[in-house]
Simulated scan of single mutants.
Amino acid sequence: MRLIAVGDNVVDYYDDRQEMFPGGNALNVAVFWKRYGVEEVSYIGIIGNDEEGEHIINSLQVEDIDVSQVRRAFGPSGEAVVTLDEHGDRIFVGSNKGGIQKHLKLNFTKEDLESIGTYSLLHTSVFSHIEKELPILKKYVNISFDFSTIHDDDYLQLVCPHVKFAIFSGGDLSASECEALIKKVHAEGTPNVIVTRGSEGSLFSDGKQVFTQGIVETEVVDTLGAGDTFVAVFLKEYIVNGNAQEAMEKGAAAAAETCQRFGAFGHGKKRARKIVLC
Rank of each mutant, 00 (worst) to 15 (best):
I44S: 00
T196C: 05
C278S: 14
V220W: 06
D228M: 01
V31M: 08
V126C: 02
L203T: 05
M1W: 04
T212D: 10
A175P: 07
G214R: 14
S42H: 10
F74E: 13
E217L: 10
G37M: 12
A253P: 02
F21M: 07
A244T: 01
V29T: 14
T124A: 08
N96A: 06
V29M: 08
E19K: 03
E63G: 06
L121E: 01
N192F: 15
D152Q: 06
V195R: 04
E54A: 04
E249V: 09
D8A: 03
E188R: 13
I57M: 15
T218I: 01
V185W: 09
I57R: 11
V220G: 02
K138M: 13
V185R: 03
F262A: 06
T229L: 08
V81L: 14
V159R: 07
I44M: 15
N107K: 10
M248P: 02
I44G: 00
V70S: 00
F21T: 01
Y13I: 00
L27Q: 05
A247D: 02
F74Y: 10
N192H: 15
Q101V: 04
M20Y: 06
N192T: 03
G99W: 07
R197A: 13
E51N: 12
D66F: 12
N243H: 12
V195Y: 08
I239P: 02
R17N: 02
Q245T: 05
V185L: 09
T190V: 10
N107D: 15
L156W: 08
A166E: 03
G98Y: 06
T190C: 15
G37T: 10
W33Y: 14
K105F: 11
F265L: 04
I100E: 02
G94T: 00
Q61P: 02
F230R: 01
L3P: 00
G268R: 11
H267L: 01
E40T: 10
I116K: 05
D85T: 00
V231Y: 03
M20V: 00
V233F: 07
V11H: 00
G171M: 09
I143D: 02
E131A: 13
S176E: 15
N96C: 09
G98Q: 05
N58R: 15
I130H: 04
T229K: 06
V163E: 04
W33N: 04
